[in-house]
Simulated scan of single mutants.
Amino acid sequence: MKVHPQQLIPGCLIIKDVMGQTLTPIIPKNTVVEPIHLQVLKKFKVLEVEIANKLVNGDVFETDQQEVITEEQEMPFYEQYVDVVKKTEGLFKSWDHRSKVDVQKIRELIYPLIEQGENKSDVLLKMHHYNKPENYFYYHIVSMPVIATFLAKQLGYSSKERLNIALAAFLSDIGMLKDQEDIYLQNRNLTQEEFKKIRQHPVESYRFIENLPVHQDVKVAVLQHHERIDGSGYPMGVKADKIHPFANIIAVSDIFHAMTSERVYRRKQSPYKVVEELMKEHIDKLDMKVLNQLVKSIVNFSNGTQVKLSNNEYGTIVFTDERHPTRPLVKLAKDQEIINLIEDKSIYIEEIL
Score class of each variant (00 low, 15 high):
residue 5 P to V: 02
residue 7 Q to K: 07
residue 17 D to P: 05
residue 19 M to D: 07
residue 28 P to L: 04
residue 51 I to L: 11
residue 57 N to A: 10
residue 67 E to Q: 07
residue 68 V to H: 03
residue 68 V to P: 01
residue 75 M to V: 08
residue 76 P to W: 11
residue 85 V to I: 13
residue 86 K to D: 09
residue 87 K to A: 11
residue 90 G to E: 15
residue 98 R to N: 14
residue 100 K to E: 14
residue 100 K to I: 11
residue 103 V to L: 12
residue 104 Q to S: 05
residue 105 K to R: 15
residue 112 P to R: 06
residue 112 P to G: 10
residue 113 L to P: 06
residue 116 Q to F: 14
residue 122 D to Y: 14
residue 132 K to A: 05
residue 141 I to T: 00
residue 146 V to R: 09
residue 147 I to Y: 04
residue 150 F to L: 08
residue 155 L to I: 04
residue 156 G to V: 00
residue 160 K to M: 09
residue 160 K to E: 15
residue 166 A to R: 00
residue 173 D to E: 10
residue 177 L to E: 08
residue 180 Q to F: 11
residue 198 I to R: 01
residue 198 I to V: 06
residue 200 Q to Y: 03
residue 208 F to T: 00
residue 213 P to G: 06
residue 214 V to P: 04
residue 218 V to C: 06
residue 221 A to W: 01
residue 222 V to P: 00
residue 229 I to K: 08
residue 231 G to D: 06
residue 234 Y to T: 03
residue 239 K to E: 10
residue 244 H to M: 08
residue 255 I to T: 10
residue 257 H to M: 14
residue 260 T to I: 02
residue 261 S to C: 10
residue 262 E to N: 09
residue 268 K to S: 04
residue 270 S to I: 00
residue 275 V to Q: 05
residue 280 K to Y: 14
residue 289 K to P: 08
residue 293 Q to R: 09
residue 293 Q to Y: 08
residue 295 V to L: 15
residue 296 K to D: 14
residue 296 K to C: 01
residue 309 L to D: 06
residue 313 E to K: 13
residue 315 G to N: 07
residue 322 E to I: 03
residue 325 P to L: 13
residue 338 I to Q: 10
residue 340 N to I: 05
residue 344 D to K: 15
residue 345 K to S: 12
residue 349 I to P: 01
residue 351 E to R: 06
residue 352 I to W: 05
